[in-house]
Simulated scan of single mutants.
Amino acid sequence: MEKINLEQKFGSFQEHWRPKTIAGLNGQEVKVVKVQGVFPWHTHAVEEEMFLVWRGVFRVEFRDRVVELHPGEMVVVPCGVEHRTAADEEAEVIIFEPAATRNTGDVIDEVYTAPLDAHI
């Protein structure tokens, strides 16, 4: 039951597209990630994901539309919906999703698939 300082958590790493778990609750994990560029298209068969922008501008792209998010804005991606994420400049994002959710969903990519046990 310790407070979590998001500024400190985001300041503790530099890499992009490698989510870090900062908390867990009710079978869910709260993760922080820095992003820049374009992430691969993928789906999560049984997991929903929530993206909340902390800093920067972040896009969640679907095959039929794009949702652009600014600090303080969020979107939930339903399970089974193909999507990819992107940011032209570095952005910092908070993710809420079930524990042990692979960041690349149904895709395994040697550059983008992050380890599941990265905690800070």
Rank of each mutant, 00 (worst) to 15 (best):
I4C: 10
I4D: 08
N5L: 10
L6D: 02
L6W: 04
E7P: 08
Q8S: 08
K9Q: 12
F10P: 02
F13L: 02
Q14Y: 07
Q14A: 11
E15N: 13
H16T: 13
H16P: 01
P19F: 03
K20T: 09
I22R: 00
G24N: 09
N26T: 08
Q28W: 08
K31W: 07
V33L: 09
V33T: 09
K34A: 14
V35I: 09
V35G: 06
G37E: 01
V38I: 10
F39S: 08
F39W: 10
W41P: 08
H42P: 06
H42Q: 11
T43I: 15
A45T: 12
V46Y: 12
E48H: 13
E49V: 00
L52T: 13
G56A: 07
F58Q: 06
V60H: 01
F62V: 04
F62Q: 03
F62S: 02
R63P: 11
D64Y: 06
V67W: 04
G72A: 02
G72V: 03
E73H: 04
E73V: 04
H83R: 02
A86T: 08
D88Y: 12
E89A: 15
A91Q: 03
V93I: 05
I94Y: 07
R102P: 07
N103R: 00
T104P: 01
T104I: 04
V107R: 02
V107L: 06
V111L: 13
V111D: 12
V111W: 11
T113D: 04
T113I: 07
A114K: 04
P115G: 10
P115Q: 11
L116C: 00
